[in-house]
């Protein structure tokens, strides 16, 4: 378990990083926290010619409020995001999700952007971005673009990111203060990837739902947005909602798979159950508020 030979560069600006990526012609891999990449390199499942270390680019770290929402620099460490007061106030669901990401040791090094750029279908942060309507900021020598998270993921570990592109930040849109976060994850051991997971938020005005963002992880080849469940919730009065029906709608968006940890039917059965349970709890909290 030693990586195949590679060149190493540590640019100090996004511009410089993009230049290296462009010059490598697809042979470069970006390293931030390295919590997934290092094992992949050691197993020689990833064999880049050039490793582009973005840890020395100051502008890639930090969390700030912008007019579009809350912006998280791609190289922000998960441990820093976890204790960030702005995030706790604005986006409590991401903080809850981060508590389930790996372990203390991996969160000390792992980055928010690293997980979101990788696209592990059973990971918490990509699903959070999809459910909450985040957009992903991407830079390359060809310019900058911003892609909705819902359009970013195309399959397990596959995204629309071009080989010369770098994820620079993730912007989560503003959600009304006091919105209700939803999070539920089932993993065999604490810190494992999910067998089944759901994440999202509801905004409630009076007794009606005014905004819903809901997503799945571990329930298919990508993080999945539960559009039909969101649509069914919008404008509904809290007391009139049947959580099981909504969960059934959400489940219809999924295509979970079998592996030796759990069967697809297990994921469907338990996914629906946990979705409904989490939703019911959120509605009760909303009602009480």
């Amino acid at each position: 378990m030693k990586p195949a030979p590679f060149d190493y560069v540590a640019p100090t600006s996004v511009e410089e990083a993009c230049k290296v990526l462009a010059e490598a012609g697809g042979g470069a891999t970006v390293i931030a926290g390295g919590q997934t990449l290092m094992p992949l390199l050691n197993l020689r499942m990833s064999q880049p010619f050039v490793l582009v270390d973005i840890n020395k680019i100051p502008e890639l770290s930090g969390i700030s409020l912008t007019e579009n929402g809350i912006r998280i620099g791609a190289a922000t460490r998960q441990c820093d995001a976890l204790k960030n007061p702005l995030l706790a106030a604005e986006l409590p669901v991401l903080v809850e999700a981060l508590r389930h990401v790996g372990h203390h040791q991996t969160r000390n090094r792992g980055t928010v952007g690293g997980s979101i750029a990788l696209g592990e279908p059973a990971a918490e942060q990509p699903a959070c971005a999809v459910a909450m309507g985040a957009s992903i900021e991407i830079a390359s020598v060809r310019g900058q673009r911003s892609v909705p998270a819902t359009e970013f993921y195309v399959g397990p570990y596959m995204t629309i990111l071009e080989p010369d592109e770098l994820v620079t930040a993730i912007t989560f849109p503003h959600w009304p203060s006091g919105h209700t976060p939803l999070f539920c994850e089932l993993a065999q051991r604490p810190g494992d990837f999910a067998l089944v997971g759901m994440v999202g938020a509801l905004a409630i005005e009076g007794v009606a739902i005014t905004r819903a963002g809901l997503g799945w992880f571990g329930m298919g080849g990508t993080p999945i947005r539960a559009y039909s469940a969101e649509a069914a919730l919008l404008g509904q009065a809290l007391g009139s909602i049947d959580a099981d029906t909504i969960a059934e709608l959400a489940l219809s968006e999924c295509a979970p798979f079998d592996d030796h940890h759990a069967s697809a039917e297990y994921r469907r059965t338990v996914g629906k159950r946990l979705f409904a349970k989490t939703l019911r709890k959120a509605l009760t909290v909303g009602e009480a508020a």
Binding site: D258, S263, A264, E265, Y266, T269, V270
Partner: peptide, 13 residues
């Protein structure tokens, strides 16, 4: 869960 549900949740797979 297959025991609890009384059906084979691994059957399809």
């Amino acid at each position: 869960l297959s025991v609890i549900e009384g059906r084979d949740l691994a059957a399809h797979s």
